[in-house]
Design a protein around this nucleic acid. Sequence first.
DNA 1: CCAATGACCGTAA
DNA 2: GTTACGGCCATTG
Length: 118
Amino acid sequence: MSELYQRIYEVVKLIPKGRVMSYGGVARQAGIPRAPRLAGYALFALPEGSRVPWWRVVNAQGRISNASRPDAPDIQRVLLRAEGVAVDEDYRLAMRDYDAEDLVHDRLAAKRARRRAP
DNA sequence: CCAATGACCGTAA
DNA sequence: GTTACGGCCATTG
């Protein structure tokens, strides 16, 4: 597994329950601003029993676009709704309310600061 | 090595 | 609010 994938997984793990992030946002916070598609690859490559909350990642339009399997969008919607995220019948949600990029950015900054001066 | 591929993004209309 | 298009870049064949 590449080091890049690990960075992506670390970011996704920081998304709190009931919040989401775009693929581009994940890529940015992982330090690969021009490779949002890579986030998709990384999630596609996730093993079955992984603890990475992949369902909290949607596209920048606030829409579930998961084509890994035909029924994947429905699975993802069920998981999100179970956390209190309102997803409509067209698999869309309000990014304005749920985007956690700033939050994750702060958590990463705090983590880096702590590592620098424990 | 080159070409195709894709859980995408930003901008433009 | 939408959809369409060009660009991105690591992975795959």
